[in-house]
Design a protein around this nucleic acid. Structure first.
Length: 903
RNA sequence: GGGGGCAUAGCUCAGCUGGUUUAGAGCAUCUGCCUUACAAGCAGAGGGUCCGCGGUUCGAACCCGUGUGCCCCCA
């Protein structure tokens, strides 16, 4: 079969993914193996694949594929999140394009559009995950609004309400005037902005002067109910208890004192607007002040609550003006009456909506909350499990972040003024009393006990729906129907899950709440390990964003480089827990790696038809410094190569195991990469490679194929497609790499590995000497070796000959004149060549080396002559230093002899 | 304002229990090679004030203190 010049991934990848699906390799059923369960962090149902998903899901696939090959029953559950606010925003946008406003639709009509949207776009991201090679169990695909899941969410709401954890209350909430909904604290992103500090004077009612207040929000002035100063502030001592007039509205308000006020900020006097600021609201409550709301749900002015002030024409003319326009207008109007003293530039922080980006308003609103202190108090495992590493965080530093948040947790606002989501199961009567129940009928049963005349038509369900995260926190349980059908065999087998892989940015939104749910509803941790990925940034460290246009088109990248190369590129650049700087050159490296593998395959396939037993294998085995080496045949060199690579492979497998257990995926991949590229291709294959059109020994061939297979096995979780392809092209296989079970780790012999390293070192040194003396690669040399252990070199003569392009090797006891001298450890190598030598350059090299060695010797002997070192240091450390010293001395001697030889 | 983290080659990062030479890797750079698997390649090389200062120790990239700069989280 003819293999293409370079590896072409596209067809290969599509072919194998379909093949794996046809063989049903990714589907999992409970059996007597140990489960390895991973639930995907469900992407937004309308989302498309981006770099973050790519990183995240590559990691999950690596872990899952590896577990599958290591005897575990691997189950990776796919699915999507209904993403209440994000999806609703998209649907509203789509309707707007069609000229339909949300307000013109009934709830049912709107939901019909939303489901249409979901059905049309909902599967896209899952299809994209297939392109990436993700080995998800598609039979288990879940959605947070599936009927059973929906029911489970409602059930949990009712349960927590019955337990008094969920309550309804009028509270200050974070209000998104664009999404027109309340948000949780976690959905508010604080941003630093350039704003202005306005100094506004409020005249005293007794005419004795005025008090100046610094504010960043003059548009809320009409809701002011007091001025507050610090009681220790001498400047304002005489003002406390007096009254001032609010500009424009002319309301009379008191000057009060409270320690909360920071005398250093602004003028030291604070205006209190309880309806529009959380802290003001607290102060308002404390001092018995009224809250006057002056903004509507869309952030526009409303005078509705200002009737008592007999608002003027001017005030009424503000009605309907947006808060930011109002700010300018009010500043102009206060300026006109000379009550703006100055305006300063100010760097301030504002909260914005995570989803719509709108500036958040603090707003008094009747919402549903979860009493988190009480909830966590009942489920201490939530905090303890992470502190005691029963749930292990990778990187562990996030444990602190987690526990700090847990210990300072605030109540969770779970209601949203949206339609796309689980509708809150509370039912109201006309007089405002309500019951929480699974259905309208049940609610009626409850309400009827208070008012026997009620009928089903008299009650109405809460219009609002629940925070998306109030459904996603059940994800690891409910994908196995753990809430809707507890005790079912799947749930018993797969839950708790094994590893969760997710972004650091949703540690509070999601991870923390899943842990709570785990302890609250099953009294168990939901997973044992959490691997937190960083954020994917561009090569300059900037966040990827649509505005910057720096987020690459992932599917385009997969088309260009292949999924394997894309996975490689993103994994090689992502040390655990750090942000990853994405650079397309990493994908190029991945593609080149594909090509390297492909060419190694081509080389080995060339040998396939040229196998022969060339020399009898009946040879003596002698135990020498290089391990057990067979002597005196062409094959002896191959025996060394084969033995060395076997041990090297065993060693790397053990290393990789260790790294994978510690979730050091990037390092594991680097290690495998280097094993394949350097040890296998650059060294091993060159060592066993027969001459041009020469046959290869059958045993060597078979060993080489077996090694290549093992390498593919090791690499498969990282680069599933090309490894499966090569596995099948190497020789006809009945089984598939995807589900191959790996063998147990084998021990390795250090002395053989050291011998291999020495050989590499000698070859490199000789090549370096050739290079420095400008010997053409084609120019053959004669090599003379001066050594005490001739046998060691006899065993690898053929490798040496080939690798340094020597035509002969001989052994000598004396120095050989007129040659290039190379010293490695205690051995000397003389390169005899036709070419005229530049002894000056040679001499310089040797002198440089000599200088280095002498300085080194000096530092070691200094250390050893320090009595305190010899007394205090561990004996093995001292011994090591002694060995260093004697090695350095020997080497200096060698170099000095070589120098003499030159002259 | 509170908390956490980071600073090592041009870039991205290893360096785990303080001692494996005078600190490593990948990428990038430079030199030489179209050597019959691979130029998407091969063979080599150069490149470091381990952020500054002070301390502990026989010994510090590593531990402690301090300064500087950057990042993240929370309010």
């Amino acid at each position: 079969m003819e293999l293409s010049k370079n590896y072409i991934p596209n067809e290969v990848e599509a072919k194998w993914y379909q093949y794996w699906l046809d063989k049903d390799y990714f589907s999992s059923k409970p059996d007597d193996r140990e489960p390895y369960t991973v639930v995907i962090p469900p992407p937004n149902v309308t989302g498309v694949l981006h770099m973050g998903h790519c990183l995240n899901n590559s990691i999950q696939d690596i872990l899952v594929r590896r577990a599958r090959m290591h005897g575990k029953n691997a189950c990776w559950v796919p699915g999507t999140d209904h993403a209440s606010i994000a999806t609703e925003a998209k649907v509203v946008g789509m309707l707007r394009e069609r000229g339909i406003t949300k307000s013109s639709l009934t709830r049912d009509e709107f939901l019909k559009y939303a489901w249409e949207w979901k059905d049309k776009y909902g599967g896209i991201i899952l299809q994209q995950l297939k392109k990436l090679g993700c080995s998800l169990d598609w039979n288990r695909t879940s959605f947070t609004m599936d009927p059973a899941y929906y029911k489970a969410v409602i059930e949990i709401f009712i349960k927590l309400h019955n337990e008094g954890i969920i309550y309804r209350g009028l509270r200050m909430v974070n209000w998104d005037p664009v999404g027109k909904t309340a948000l949780s604290d976690e959905e508010v992103i604080f941003k630093e902005i350039d704003s202005k500090l306005y100094y506004v004077s409020y005249p005293l009612t007794d005419g004795s002067g005025s008090i100046t207040v610094a504010t960043t929000r003059p548009e809320t002035i009409l809701g002011d109910v007091a001025i507050c100063v610090n009681p220790t502030d001498e400047r304002y001592k005489n003002f406390v208890g007096k009254h001032v007039i609010v500009p424009i509205i002319n309301r009379k308000i008191p000057v009060i004192a409270d320690e909360y006020v920071d005398a250093e900020f602004g003028t030291g006097a604070l205006k209190i607007t309880p309806a529009h600021d959380k802290n003001d609201n607290e102060l308002g409550k404390k001092h018995g002040l009224k809250a006057l709301n002056t903004l509507d749900s869309e952030g526009r002015f409303t005078a509705e609550e200002l009737a008592e002030d007999n608002p003027s024409e001017l005030v009424l003319s503000y009605n309907g003006i947006d808060r930011f326009d109002l700010r300018k207008k009010i500043v102009t109007d206060i300026s006109a009456i000379n009550q703006i003293q100055k305006i300063e530039d100010y760097k301030g922080q504002i909260g914005t909506s995570e989803r719509t980006g709108a500036v958040i308003e603090s707003r008094l609103s009747l919402q549903w909350f979860m009493d988190m202190k009480k909830f966590i108090g009942q489920n201490p495992g939530t905090i303890d499990s992470v502190a005691t590493d029963q749930i292990k965080f990778h990187p562990a530093k996030l444990k602190n972040t987690y526990s700090y948040w847990m210990e300072n947790i605030k109540d969770w606002c779970i209601s949203r003024q949206l339609w796309w989501g689980q509708q809150i199961p509370a039912y109201y009567t006309a007089d405002g009393s309500f019951a929480v129940a699974a259905s309208k009928e049940e609610a009626l049963q409850k309400l009827i006990t208070q008012d026997a005349t009620l009928t089903i038509n008299d009650i109405q369900q809460d219009e609002d729906c629940l925070d998306t995260w109030f459904s996603s926190w059940l994800w690891p349980m409910e994908v196995f129907k753990g809430i809707s059908n507890p005790g079912n065999p799947d749930y018993n087998y797969y839950y708790p899950t094994t590893t969760l892989v997710t972004g650091q940015d949703i540690i509070f939104f999601w991870v923390a709440r899943m842990i709570m749910a785990g302890y609250a509803f099953k009294d168990q941790q939901p997973f044992t390990d959490v691997y937190f990925t960083g954020m994917v940034r561009d090569s300059q460290g900037r966040k990827m964003s649509k505005q910057l246009g720096n987020s690459p088109d992932l599917l385009g990248l997969i088309d260009t480089y292949g999924a394997d190369a894309t996975r490689f590129g993103i994994m090689i650049a992502s040390p655990a827990g750090n942000d990853i700087l994405f650079d397309e050159s990493a994908l190029e490296q991945g593609r080149n790696f594909n090509n390297k593998l492909w060419n190694a395959l081509k080389l080995i396939k060339m040998w396939e038809g040229r196998q022969a037993y060339e020399v009898s294998r009946e040879t003596s085995v002698v135990n020498e410094g290089l391990g057990n080496i067979t002597h005196d045949s062409r094959l002896t060199t191959h025996d060394f190569a084969i033995r060395w690579f076997q041990h090297r492979l065993n060693q790397v497998k053990a290393d990789v195991d260790e790294m994978m257990n510690q979730f050091r995926l990037s390092e594991a991949l680097k290690t495998i990469y280097s094993l394949i590229w350097d040890d296998f291709c650059s060294w091993y294959l060159e060592w066993v490679k027969p001459g041009f059109e020469q046959p290869i020994d059958k045993d060597v061939y078979e060993k080489t194929v077996a090694y290549f297979e093992e390498l593919m096995e090791l690499l498969h979780p990282f680069m599933p497609f090309i490894t499966e392809e090569i596995y099948h092209l190497l020789q006809n296989k009945q089984d598939d790499l995807c589900v191959k079970q790996v063998a147990l780790l084998q021990p390795f012999d250090k002395s053989i590995l050291e011998a291999g390293e020495l050989l590499k070192q000698v070859i490199s040194a000789l090549r370096d000497a050739r290079n420095k003396n400008q010997l053409k690669p084609k120019e053959s040399i004669k090599l003379h070796i001066q050594t005490e252990s001739t046998a060691n070199y006899k065993a690898i003569e053929n490798i040496l000959l080939k690798q340094v392009n020597a035509e002969s090797i001989s052994y000598t006891e004396a120095t050989v004149s007129n040659t290039i001298v190379v010293a490695v450890e205690k051995d000397k190598f003389f390169i005899e060549t036709e070419q005229k030598l530049d002894t000056g350059a040679l001499k310089n090299e040797l002198l440089k080396d000599l200088d280095y060695q002498k300085k080194f010797l000096e530092s070691v002997s200094k250390k050893l002559s320090n009595e305190r070192f010899v007394q205090n240091a561990k004996p093995e450390v001292v011994d090591l230093e002694r060995k260093k010293m004697s090695d350095a001395e020997a080497r200096i001697k060698t170099i000095e002899e070589s120098l003499q030889n030159l002259i």
